[in-house]
């Protein structure tokens, strides 16, 4: 789910950086210092989850869990995801420095939307925690794949088949991420329920 360097036009790259910077800035400005500790922890968790590979069919996909990070960090999810992606780009050459902005936007915006949608559900417990987790994981990856495909389309019409392919390739991940988020949330709900409210 990373866009490599040298594909996207400058406008998309700059737009990604601008939007992500606004997200990171606003999130950090409003956060308390205790919340920063939590953000750091989930940034580490997001950094590490990309190394969990799941072989499905011919390709190897890795967990994203951006919905999980968004749900538990709230508005600082841009910072959590942006810093994790920066380190993945620097240390492991996943993605790249020029695409860092757009990659952060593609991952963090769905995460933040999932926080807005699912955090009230989690607080009121109107549906079981497991279901909230599944939908959160599913929707976040769905939106990220959609944004990723749309960013590829900005590179030109010739990228439309690639964009469709990227979206299709990520459909199994939506389900896998949904299950993992569901399990993780249920685990936290049993062990440390106060953690569910950021």
């Amino acid at each position: 789910m990373h866009i490599s360097e040298g594909v996207l036009p400058l406008a998309t790259l700059a737009g990604g950086y601008a939007a992500s910077s606004v997200g990171i800035g606003l999130g950090l400005k409003k956060s308390t210092d205790e919340h920063l500790v939590r953000t750091a922890m989930f940034s580490s968790a997001f950094f590490v989850t990309s190394f969990i590979h799941i072989p499905i069919g011919p390709t190897n996909i890795h967990l994203v869990l951006n919905g999980f990070v968004g749900l538990l960090t709230g508005r600082t999810c841009f910072a959590a995801i942006g810093i994790a992606l920066l380190l993945q780009a620097v240390l492991f050459q996943f993605g790249g420095i020029t695409t860092l902005g757009i990659n952060t936007l593609n991952m963090a915006l769905p995460a933040f939307l999932c926080f807005l949608i699912f955090s009230p559900l989690l607080r009121r417990k109107s549906i079981p925690v497991v279901l909230t987790g599944f939908f959160c994981g599913f929707v976040s990856v769905f939106l990220s794949a959609l944004l990723l495909s749309l960013s590829l389309v900005t590179a030109g019409e010739s990228f439309i088949p690639a964009a469709k392919l990227v979206f299709a390739a990520n459909t199994p991940l939506m389900i896998v991420d949904g299950f993992v988020t569901a399990l993780a949330l249920q685990f936290i709900d049993k062990v440390k329920p106060e953690m569910l409210i950021p």
């Binding site: 205790e34 919340h35 500790v37 939590r38 750091a40 922890m41 989930f42 580490s44 968790a45 590490v48 936290i188 062990v191 440390k192 106060e194 953690m195």
Partner: peptide, 9 residues
């Protein structure tokens, strides 16, 4: 928060 974070990590 630290406790929860360590747990998660």
């Amino acid at each position: 928060h630290i406790q929860a974070g360590v747990l998660a990590s």
